[in-house]
Design a protein around this nucleic acid. Sequence first.
DNA 1: ACACCAACCGATCGAACGGTCAGTGATCGT
DNA 2: ACGATCACTGACCGTTCGATCGGTTGGTGT
Lengths: 206, 206
Amino acid sequence: MPQAAGRTEAAERILEAAKHLFAREGYGSVSIRDIAEAAGVSKANIFHHFASKEELYLETLRRSCEAARALLEAFREEHPCPAHQLRSFFRDDLRQASDDTDGSLLLIAEGFNAGPQRARALVEEVFGADFRRFTQVLAAGQSSEGPWRTDIDPAVVATLMIAANTFFISHREVLRQLPGVDFADDPERYADHVVDILLDGIRKEA
Amino acid sequence: MPQAAGRTEAAERILEAAKHLFAREGYGSVSIRDIAEAAGVSKANIFHHFASKEELYLETLRRSCEAARALLEAFREEHPCPAHQLRSFFRDDLRQASDDTDGSLLLIAEGFNAGPQRARALVEEVFGADFRRFTQVLAAGQSSEGPWRTDIDPAVVATLMIAANTFFISHREVLRQLPGVDFADDPERYADHVVDILLDGIRKEA
DNA sequence: ACACCAACCGATCGAACGGTCAGTGATCGT
DNA sequence: ACGATCACTGACCGTTCGATCGGTTGGTGT
């Protein structure tokens, strides 16, 4: 095991291949041989750079966490109107996830029925920050002179937005097959529709 | 391979154990030995009842599809008011998924980044019926004298509801860890909150 | 009584698994 | 010029994988 940072080009290829395969096939269905072949390196070389299959997997996870945080950080922009902020936040959220589909799939799969410890780690690393981002703008919109109802739990709205994002990324192909869905490949339109509904609901205003 | 229907008690235990393990660990991470041990039968007996690991997996899938359809069918109840219908449908949806968590997880995992063929099959077998159920009641509420806005795409609302359901089932533990979430173990409350938001949105009525 | 067949098991198969190791070639500081 | 270090490999290890095998048991029809 050489130093952690300053990866070789080969090590980088290994990580990239591992990330892709783990995200698409699942940890148990991917063998070191598969990764070696996809990365164009020898099997032994993988163990030269990473202590074990588990460690390699965890490294791809860490990377995806960092990438998600960095991208979200980069997108951050302030806007005085809570509605605009909500829309822009959700757009960013979807864009970030779309820009790193493999990483997002990896994190979603990790959260898929994870145990309490892993779920806690995941929340601390990624989901939590996202969730807080949403709940904060929601709470701001609910403040004394804010434009939003105060009898709505911000946590539910934030959950809905993360659920909408997660489903869009992880069930894209299902979405494509559903009748009447024309937004499966247009994150921005999907995001706008979702926010429109969240803001005003589907009921006619009296 | 004996007849398809009329399973032995042992075969039934095998299916049950396989369903549970596949749902929680994923296909690739579960071995025939694991299933045999969990079901309390010999490894060879599994191959006596099922042609292969793949075939066993597909059988658990088929079962979960049937169960989901049957349960949803059973819940069906009509109500004149579209809003009540939407609420009751979404409640049923969540209840059904909660009543057969393993089966739901299996189907969600199958839809997770499935290829076009598998996604199509899945839509035809389960997601499609659910989706149509939602879009129909939504379209009904949008009809000439319905109480709902006509500038909202029913497909987006239906997608949101399925996403909300899917996330609630598959990321329960993450949900438990998120700050301010007190509905992680109360599907009914979660369902009601979600429907409330979908109906009226979060914006104050002018 | 006997033939038959499904249910079931222990032992075993070749293949694939994660992981190890001795060694090679290139790049260093000295 | 030379030892040290690092990236990297082919051959190999023991284990476990999915799957098969021959064989035993118990019930059923005749």
